[in-house]
Amino acid sequence: MSDSASLDVVAKPRPLHSLSRRDAAVTESRPVRIVLIALTLLFLGAFLVVPLAAVFEMAFSKGVVYYLGALADPDAVSAIRLTLLVAAISVPLNVVFGLAASWAIAKFEFRGKSLLMTLIDLPFSVSPVIAGLVYALMFGAQGWLGPWLEAHDIQLIFAVPGIVMATVFVTFPFVARELIPLMQAQGSEEEEAARVLGASGWQMFSRVTLPNVKWGLLYGVILCNARAMGEFGAVSVVSGHIRGQTNTMPLHVEILYNEYNFAAAFAVASLLALLALVTLGLKLLAERKLTQVRVETVQTV
């Protein structure tokens, strides 16, 4: 922008906050701009801000005491605990997978690589209900492995393992798809240098690769975690909705809502909305750091 501006034949210093004639030719008139901005804010306000604000308004509709009481309810506490547990299992699993997949894909050239990447993205194009259904079909009472599992007294569906598996499925690609392009952009010169200097495989990974990709990794983890904690459709199919046992927070919200206990439903929902806001904030931070990393990568290459 600056070098093209220097080509300008504007003799007078132009006043701040007003467009030069050159810029005016490629933007809209002021009234049009104001109308478009207003229209955008109105649309986003009605579709995003109003529902978000409504969650908190409804949550506190019966006062702070009721709100805290709804969250301290044993069923709510157990739902919160289960949600945290499921995220604590499925997120690390997908982090390990994401690191392994991105290492193999970004640092090596091999046959069938693009097919592998397509398959990694596959879970995003499977609707959540169907993701839950495939596990119910495999491990459910009428499923393929159902009779065998029953004979050995192992319950996967309508139990915590089923919820974890469905969550792992829907959050499968998040970490990998953030890391692959980042590692590809960074190349492997630094790792090779580390090897030449005598670093072991693990030293190279923990001292060179991991610090290089940490913001991309954080970005993937944030998204993965948000989805893991908030997943509804897939978990709903395999959970069995047993109160206090196999109810995650989103499912608990549904149960309370269907019992017309709106204030309590929105109280639990407000925690999830808070999680969403924290996610957006952290995501912004990680994005900013990632842009810096990218700029540095471009400069050094």
Binding site: A226, E231, E254
Partner: peptide, 9 residues
Amino acid sequence: LPFALPTSV
């Protein structure tokens, strides 16, 4: 926001 907000909420 629609990506971050759980669908049931």
